[in-house]
């Protein structure tokens, strides 16, 4: 939370304080702001929404989008669901693995992090991937790495 003080985060979350669905929204806002949800933010959200830390932590751990550590500069999501399996994503995943990118561990290499996802809604043009939000159809390990490397400075 280097660039943000507790106060600035509380100010940011302020408008959502009384919202009935505050916990999930607050977590999403913190992640939008910081790229991840540091442990200290869990306490802040609990305090702000007047709920227990356990409740916030429970929501945080339920959803796979939330991260507890900062993401790499480039995040690649690789679809592992059925339609992309049928389009031969296994080869692509093993090629990426061979180059040091493991979609299962999400380990960061050269500021690139690859993660598995279940369906990006591009099931007719699989294998599908998304590089920092940019969709890639008929993906190959080459096209994914090209798009990712263009974004690393």
């Amino acid at each position: 939370m280097s660039n943000y003080s507790e106060e600035s985060i509380l100010n940011y979350l302020g408008p959502y304080k009384d919202e009935a669905s505050a916990i999930l929204r607050s977590l999403q806002l913190v992640q939008e702001l910081l790229g991840y949800v540091p442990d200290s933010a869990i306490d802040l959200i609990a305090k702000n929404s007047n709920v227990s830390r356990a409740e916030v932590y429970g929501v945080f751990t339920f959803y796979s989008d939330f991260r507890s550590t900062p993401p790499a500069q480039v995040v690649v999501k690789v679809c592992v669901a059925e339609a992309c399996q049928a389009s031969g994503n296994a080869e692509l995943i093993s090629q990426l693995h061979g180059q040091g990118y493991d979609i299962h561990s999400g380990k960061i290499k050269d500021d690139i992090q690859m993660e598995q996802t279940f369906c990006l809604g591009n099931c007719a043009l699989g294998p599908a991937a998304m590089v920092n939000g940019k969709p890639i159809g008929r993906a190959t390990s080459t096209s994914i790495l090209k798009a990712a490397l263009e974004l690393t400075s």
Partner: peptide, 24 residues
């Protein structure tokens, strides 16, 4: 309202829980 990466939240009652800001 935006989900947060949970398949089961497509089930209608889990979706309601998620819309209420809780675990799905």
């Amino acid at each position: 309202r935006v989900g947060a990466g949970s398949y089961v939240c497509g089930e209608e009652t889990a979706m309601l829980e998620s819309l209420e800001g809780k675990r799905g």
